[in-house]
């Protein structure tokens, strides 16, 4: 009975958060420490680990072509997929924010692809990409454009997967939609009073007010894109000629096909550092273009 309500509240807080904390420590933090240690060893599954210092990291940067190839494939994918995804999601969110009949129906339709499981999605796109009787080539042919080999050609494989990634814009669009609804109406009214049209509203109200949402989506999309895996595993197996050997897929192959746990752990840490660096850069630059509403304008 000696404890104050404040103290009791803190105790309850910790207690209720404990499952998450334990989960994080046991399944994320400790494995991370373990993989950092493993990354300093030469350890193949079934054999005893040997301490090798930074040899795995040296090998990565000096003697592993696949490392650079996979890094490039992943960056290429990220640079293509993220901007396209954000633009499409933003455009669709703007449309879905219009007060029209059947607004709810449209919102459902545009969100649907996002809830298709990624593997089912991949199987579907394998058919769409089929150069002989796939829907995409049928369409390009009808439009008088040349046929593409899509995921079956080294040069078009990654662009094809970028195109496919945009199909799952639903999640980002929902976040944008929520952001759009949070833009204060009086600002639009003010611009209307001043005689500004739709473009001005978009350029000077919507866009600046949306920058925090855009920034959030940008960071999460970049992190997600850098970890692209399923498309390579299900659709291309890294091919043709390793052109879609995405970083995580390469890591997975190293760990479970080549059984090199030490090297795979080192790869994982390099990716972690890359993602961290990219995120830091994005945050550092964000002050230049992200506008945070001053607390009291509403």
């Amino acid at each position: 009975m000696a404890s104050s309500p404040m103290k009791q509240e803190a105790r309850w807080g910790v207690l209720l958060a404990l499952p998450a904390i334990i989960g994080f420590v046991a399944f994320t933090f400790l494995p991370m420490i373990a993989s950092a240690v493993i990354s300093l060893t030469d350890w193949t599954i079934g054999a005893a680990p040997k301490f090798v210092g930074f040899a795995n990291y040296t090998r990565m940067f000096t003697a592993d072509d696949s490392f650079f190839k996979s890094l490039w494939a992943t960056l290429y994918y990220t640079l293509g997929a993220v901007p396209l995804l954000l633009i499409v999601a933003f455009a669709v969110a703007l449309l879905l924010n219009q007060p029209v009949r059947g607004q709810g129906v449209f919102r459902v339709i545009y969100y649907l692809p996002a809830i298709v499981p990624i593997v089912a999605n991949s199987m579907l796109w394998i058919w769409l990409f089929n150069p002989d009787f796939g829907l995409l080539n049928t369409l390009t042919e009808k439009a008088g454009l040349p046929r593409s080999q899509w995921i079956f050609d080294e040069s078009t494989a990654i662009p094809s997967l970028i195109l496919m990634s945009v199909w799952g814009f639903g999640n980002v669009a929902v976040i944008f939609l929520a952001g759009l609804q949070g833009v204060p109406r009086q600002l639009y009214e003010a611009i209307a009073v001043d005689g500004g049209g739709a473009w001005r509203k978009f350029r000077h109200i919507t866009l600046p007010m949306m920058t925090p949402t855009i920034f959030y989506s940008l960071v999460t999309s970049v992190i997600g894109a850098l970890q692209v895996f399923v498309q390579a595993a299900v659709m291309t197996e890294g091919g043709p000629n390793d052109s879609t050997l995405f970083y995580i897929y390469y890591l997975y192959r190293t760990a479970f096909t080549n059984n090199e746990m030490g090297y795979a752990s080192a790869l994982a840490w390099v990716l972690f550092l890359v993602i961290m660096a990219v995120t830091v850069v994005l945050f550092r630059n964000s002050s230049r273009w992200v506008y945070y509403e001053a607390g009291s304008t509403r």
Binding site: M123, I126, N130, P131, D132, I151, F152, D153, M235, P240
Partner: peptide, 9 residues
């Protein structure tokens, strides 16, 4: 068939 014609899976 080419690999593309043969198809994935």
């Amino acid at each position: 068939p080419s690999p593309a014609q043969l198809g994935k899976n």
